[in-house]
C-alpha cells in the first residue's frame, strides 16, 4: 500500500507543478483560464491524495465552474470596454483571424 500511495503523491505533486508553471507561462487570460481549471483539478487531486477531502472539496467547488465564470466575465467586460474606447485589441484579433482565413 505504501509505495503506491507515495507514487500517487509524487504524481499529483508533479501535475500541480506542471499545471501551475503552465498557468504562469500563459499570458492571454482566456488561454490561462483553461490552464487554471486544470490547476484547480490537479490541486483537488493532490488534496484528495493527501487525504484532506474538505480542502479538496473547497477547491473543486470554487475552481471548476466559479473561477472560470468570473474570469471570463471580466475578460468579456474588459474587451468590450476596450472596443468602446477605440482600443485595437479585438479588432486586431479579428483581422488576424481573417488573415488566417485568407491564407487557407
Amino acid at each position: 500500500m505504501r509505495p503506491v500511495a507515495d507514487v500517487l503523491i509524487v504524481l499529483a505533486l508533479a501535475l500541480v507543478a506542471a499545471s501551475s508553471t503552465a498557468a504562469v507561462l500563459a499570458r492571454d487570460p482566456v488561454r490561462q483560464s483553461t490552464v487554471l481549471a486544470l490547476l484547480g483539478l490537479s490541486l483537488a487531486l493532490l488534496f484528495a491524495v493527501l487525504q484532506a477531502p474538505d480542502v479538496a472539496l473547497s477547491q473543486l467547488a470554487v475552481g471548476s465552474a466559479l473561477t472560470p465564470l468570473m474570469l471570463l466575465l471580466s475578460v468579456r467586460k474588459v474587451r468590450r470596454k476596450g472596443k468602446e474606447g477605440g482600443s485595437h485589441r479585438n479588432a486586431g484579433n479579428r483581422t488576424g483571424s481573417t488573415d488566417q482565413e485568407g491564407r487557407r
Binding site: P53, D54, A56, L57, S58, L60, A61, V62, A65, L66, L69
Partner: peptide, 17 residues
Amino acid sequence: SPGGGFQGGVVVATALH
C-alpha cells in the same frame, strides 16, 4: 462527511448560475 457550509454554498450558487 467532507464538506460543509462553504463548499455546499458554492455548489448551490453554481447551480443557480
